[in-house]
Simulated assay, not measured.
Amino acid sequence: MNYIERPEYLQQLLDLMDTPDIKIITGVRRSGKSELMKAYIRKITETQPDANIIFVDLFDLKYEELKEYHKL
């Protein structure tokens, strides 16, 4: 699988980083939403190594119990 960088989308997220707005990434399946989020996290941790970031991939089996809302 080829990785396609999306610098425009990443820059849009970075421009909105310090705003109080909730950012929502939408798109069709397998369009790169998770990879965009991982790139965003990498950029944040480059400038803020002590940033408090939690990334939960619900397709990862170690988070399977979080699929039930009351356990989350």
Rank of each mutant, 00 (worst) to 15 (best):
N2R: 08
N2S: 12
Y3P: 09
Y3R: 12
I4S: 03
I4T: 12
E5Y: 08
R6L: 00
P7R: 01
E8M: 00
Y9D: 15
Y9C: 07
Y9N: 14
Y9S: 06
Q11Y: 14
Q11H: 11
Q11C: 08
Q11I: 03
Q11E: 15
Q11V: 05
Q11K: 14
Q12D: 10
Q12A: 05
Q12N: 06
Q12L: 07
Q12R: 13
L13N: 04
L14A: 03
L14R: 12
L14I: 12
D15T: 06
L16A: 13
L16C: 06
M17P: 00
D18N: 04
D18W: 03
D18P: 08
D18C: 00
T19M: 11
P20L: 07
I22T: 05
K23H: 12
K23Q: 14
K23F: 02
K23N: 11
I24P: 08
I24W: 05
I24F: 03
I25F: 05
I25C: 05
I25G: 02
I25N: 14
G27V: 06
G27M: 12
V28W: 09
V28L: 13
R29T: 06
R30Q: 15
R30N: 00
S31P: 00
S31H: 02
S31K: 01
S31T: 10
G32D: 04
G32P: 04
G32E: 04
G32S: 02
K33E: 04
K33N: 06
S34M: 09
S34K: 13
E35C: 05
E35H: 15
E35K: 11
L36F: 08
M37N: 02
M37F: 05
M37T: 15
A39Q: 13
Y40W: 07
I41Y: 00
I41P: 00
I41S: 01
R42P: 02
R42F: 01
R42K: 04
K43R: 15
K43C: 02
K43H: 15
I44H: 00
T45L: 15
E46Q: 15
T47N: 10
T47C: 14
T47W: 00
T47L: 05
Q48K: 08
P49S: 12
P49Q: 09
P49D: 04
P49H: 11
A51M: 01
A51S: 11
I53N: 13
I53D: 02
I54Q: 10
I54H: 08
I54V: 15
I54S: 05
F55I: 00
V56L: 12
V56T: 14
D57K: 06
L58A: 13
L58P: 07
L58V: 11
L58E: 10
F59K: 15
F59Y: 13
F59R: 10
F59V: 10
D60L: 04
D60H: 15
D60T: 02
L61V: 11
L61A: 11
Y63F: 12
Y63K: 07
Y63D: 08
Y63V: 03
E64I: 06
E64R: 06
E64Q: 13
E65A: 13
E65D: 09
E65C: 03
E65T: 12
K67T: 15
E68K: 09
E68C: 01
E68N: 08
E68Y: 10
Y69P: 00
Y69I: 03
Y69W: 09
Y69R: 14
H70M: 11
H70L: 08
K71N: 12
K71I: 09
L72V: 10
